[in-house]
């Protein structure tokens, strides 16, 4: 009798733990924070949930995967400019933020941004943010320049690089001509500015790896770059300093979202909470991370850390213009201008 009771008790316990221990599937860029081994191990110990990853190579691929594989993913990384589209298509589920202990640390300008909320519901939890601007070789520049005009400086002709990306190039051109990046009024001015930049350019870069190799080989004096990548390059020992110039910089925000078809929404929320935890972020930052959208996490960093020293500076943050969605027509227009500029070389 007693043993039967114990048996049923242990069976119940087993069933309970079985219900709690989910396998959640995360869709993200490879090597972008969610798939760090030490963090996943600690997450599994803390919650019992295991995490499996799948990767995408572009935002378009991410959207296609969400559309064509319902139920396959529980957490997905969505760049905030794609949140409205994904929400509108019904791909994302609203997130119950009351279940997220660390959500309170996210400042209102991120948490209540139109990009990640819709009708009072939260469809994306702001996770990381960063800046697209430029970085310089510190062996050439001392101190680092404070203006974007350095890309056009004849002294560095043939030692400049920008990324081969139409939208990014046009937005850099907009900053250099004193325009808003999300609403470029004078396209001709931007085109003329970029045309003047072309003879300065050594080559275009495509990926972070490209950038590091060219910089290590001494091909570049100054090149456009991403803040998080610059932190990683510097951590690797490259003589690199990231600059947020007086003309401003392009800001982006990445959010973690739960697909509408997810079958493990509770465990997914636990994982998102884990990802915005200051304790996790401080460890991640040591390996080279973008800025955390959680103010408490940023405050927990060492004072010398780039993400606190530079991006944590309110004066710098004020210069950052955050990207809003680019519609297909505008994207096409930018692409035509950019391709014409490249073809004319």
């Amino acid at each position: 009798m007693k043993s039967a009771f114990l048996l049923s008790l242990s069976a119940a316990a087993l069933a309970a733990s079985g219900a709690l221990a989910d396998e959640i599937r995360v869709l993200n860029w490879q090597g972008y924070g969610t798939d760090l081994d030490w963090s996943l191990k600690a997450f599994e110990e803390a919650t019992g949930n295991t995490v499996v990853h799948e990767y995408f190579n572009s935002e378009q691929e991410m959207l296609t995967k969400l559309r064509t594989n319902p139920g396959a993913y529980d957490v997905v990384l969505v760049n905030a400019i794609y949140n409205p589209q994904a929400t509108e298509e019904g791909l994302l589920a609203p997130v119950d933020t009351s279940a997220l202990e660390n959500y309170a640390g996210i400042p209102a300008e991120f948490a209540q941004s139109d990009l990640v909320t819709e009708g009072g519901e939260v469809y994306g939890v702001p996770w990381t943010w960063g800046v697209t601007s430029f970085a310089v070789n510190t062996q050439v520049f001392d101190p680092a320049p404070g203006t974007l005009e350095v890309l056009w400086d004849p002294a560095h002709a043939g030692r400049v690089s920008i990324r081969d990306d139409a939208v990014e190039a046009m937005q850099i051109g907009a900053l250099a001509t004193g325009q808003g990046i999300n609403d470029i009024q004078d396209l001709d001015a931007v085109q003329a500015k970029l045309e003047a930049l072309m003879p300065q350019v050594r080559t275009f870069w495509g990926s972070e790896n490209d950038w590091n190799q060219f910089m290590a080989a001494g091909e570049f004096d100054v090149a456009t770059y991403w803040s998080g990548s610059a932190a990683r390059s510097a951590a690797m020992g490259l003589p690199v300093e990231f600059v947020v110039p007086k003309e401003g910089a392009i800001g982006w925000l990445d959010s973690l979202a739960i697909p509408a078809t997810s079958e493990h929404k509770e465990a997914a929320a636990q994982f998102i909470d884990w990802m915005i935890d200051p304790e996790f972020y401080v460890k991640w930052d040591a390996e080279g991370a973008p800025a955390s959208a959680n103010a408490e996490a940023a405050a927990a960093l060492d004072e010398t850390a780039f993400n606190r020293r530079v991006l944590g500076d309110p004066e710098v943050a004020a210069r950052v213009q955050f990207q809003t969605p680019v519609d297909d027509g505008t994207r096409q227009k930018y692409l035509e201008i950019w391709q014409a500029l490249k073809a004319a070389q």
Partner: peptide
Amino acid sequence: LGGRMGTYYGTVIEDQFVAVY
């Protein structure tokens, strides 16, 4: 190998497939 001079018909086709979709 071409750097900024390296935009050709083939690279634009490649862009349509891998970068612009």
